[in-house]
Amino acid sequence: MTPLLVAAGVLAAFGAAVATGARDPRIASLGLAGMLVTTPFVADPLPQPLSLAFGAAAGILAAFFLFSAARRLAEPLEPPLGALATIASAAAGFVVGLGASAVSVPRGGPDAALAAGLAAVAVAVGPIAVTRDVFRLGTALIVLLDGALLLMEALTGTPDPLVGIAAGVALVVLAAAAGALVRGAVSATGATAIQDDPLAARAAASRSGTAPR
């Protein structure tokens, strides 16, 4: 494991923490961009240059979708864990991942990928489980998926280019969906926080999305 690999892993973990913990949605998008662009480099051996470029480009595009949605939001977000606790969770996940080498967890990839993947999963699970904010949910889902890709890399080694392409496409599609979710929430309620679904509203919502013939 080289220092460069660890540095890339630290950057990815820090990006995950910023994406899920920052109060300003635009800073959260930038954190997400940092994570997604760094992720393809947390591999040993490094993928082919074309795969690296595709992964980085997909990461930038995915973050752009979230950034363009973030520009619509005027109010700061409330992180479910708090910014400091989020960074502490990421750090704890990273240390646990690095420590896994001491107990010889069988794997084919670098420890840094395992560490960054665990850090990403650690910070993403909370917002996914409890948040009602669609922007926070969208960023957390992307961080979770990217964390899973890092864990896969740690377990199986550098993935095939085809898996890299599929992962890039999945991240971009998820980011576009998250962007659409944010725009839809703002246009439907004027905010990104969606309250729980009351039973009566659910019954009345039947067959919506249709217009008379």
């Binding site: 839809g184 439907a188 309250q195 509203a201 919506s208 999305g209």
Partner: peptide, 8 residues
């Protein structure tokens, strides 16, 4: 689209 809270 069209956006409504239940659909979101």
């Amino acid at each position: 689209s069209p956006a409504a809270p239940s659909r979101i």
